[in-house]
Design a protein around this nucleic acid. Structure first.
Lengths: 213, 213
DNA sequence: GCGTGGCACGTACGGTGTACGTCCGTCAAT
DNA sequence: ATTGACGGACGTACACCGTACGTGCCACGC
């Protein structure tokens, strides 16, 4: 009856749609099947179980990253570009970000960014051990930044909502927080991300000039 | 019948115990009640719902951090100490780390580390805006590092397990990953954490000497 | 014509969170 | 001492979840 014959990509796409519309908590096999106008158990002809489906969601989102690597650019710019590309996940699939981040993938889609980043760092002159360390540091920073950006908004408000209601804190107990409530209350995610990334890029640039360590 | 009369702290303690023993996926109200030798619905006399219980778990774990701030030390050492204190969560409560990280708290337990960090940065001479930025950067790095350290081991093997099975990758597609499989396959979490933290600390130290930005 | 295999689907089972009603022990006021 | 209120422990019930299993249909190779 369905115009298209129910395939794994269609199921994954429906899952991503559902997550973006109603949050990851709304995902259930029954719900996805209903959205596709299909019986629940039909899904299991294409996907072994729910965990594998979420893995496929993560892989699909990850493979949607536009990695435009410019070999002519300096290595610092290439690092910046790759970090920004990763951050685009949070823009294109904000509600899926948590799903992507909370599962590690050994699939090609998950390994490609790693491969690219290592190649860039090696071409910059870092040895293998150093390249892996730097990459891990960047990944930690990026993942942490994405988590803040996406917020702990797993199901709730679409995007907005102030991070914390800072008017309720006791100024006597938390004087700094009280004094800086304006700065803490708002957050330009892009500026914050760029700030930290710039610090990291320049730090490893300095480290390279010093003849690594 | 229970020797002790079933209180909120007892419920939270049972939840933490259960998470550490069997992973966060094993947590259910029925299971916690069974572990306490108590009816399921009795829990709801002390905890409004499961989400609030997990919030309480996060808050309890967070308040267990030993923040020994030494005002005589230099500000860089104080920053290091606070970052390491935060990382201790992953050691004391490895299976709870994901729970802590995936919920933001506006409770005192969650705000105290923020207050301390801001005070340290302000005392180092950073203005408010800069202090907030630096703090956010550190939090992102620490959170990302904890996630890697705890792994995506939500329920599975206790601690070990190589992060990825790198023998299955195609050397033609991923030459760098193949060449660096040894470095990628093992990870000294403490050394990696210290490496990135040191880079960040020195980067902001340089920035301060340059008269901020 | 006739297996045969893939796919859609229904049913069923054991699990989940929690709303609601009931019971009972304790304590305050009469 | 009696009564009344109240808080906490508990059982039942409901809607929902993932998924194991069996059934039927249909399109194909022989």
């Amino acid at each position: 009856m369905p115009a298209e014959p129910l395939s794994r990509p269609r199921i994954v796409a429906a899952a991503i749609d559902l997550i973006e519309r109603e949050g990851a908590d709304a995902v259930s096999m029954r719900r996805i099947a209903a959205d596709l106008g299909v019986g629940v158990m039909s899904l299991y002809n294409h996907v072994p179980n729910k965990a594998a489906l979420l893995d496929a969601v993560a892989e699909t989102v990850l493979s949607g990253i536009e990695f435009t690597d410019d070999p002519d650019a300096g290595w610092t710019d290439r690092v910046r570009m790759q970090a920004r590309a990763f951050r685009q996940i949070a823009h294109h699939y904000p509600r899926c970000t948590m799903v992507v981040v909370s599962r590690q993938l050994q699939s090609p889609a998950g390994l490609l960014p790693v491969e690219r980043a290592l190649a860039t760092l090696r071409s910059a002159g870092f040895d293998g051990e150093e390249a892996v360390r730097i990459l891990r540091m960047f990944i930690a920073y990026i993942v942490g930044s994405l988590l803040r950006e996406v917020g702990v908004t797993p199901t709730f408000a679409p995007v907005h909502s102030s991070p914390v209601d800072l008017r309720k804190v006791d100024p006597a107990l938390f004087p700094e927080i009280d004094a800086l409530s304006a700065e803490l209350g708002s957050c330009d995610h892009e500026a914050e991300f760029e700030f930290g990334m710039e610090l990291l890029v320049q730090a490893i640039a300095v480290r390279r000039e010093q003849g690594n360590g």
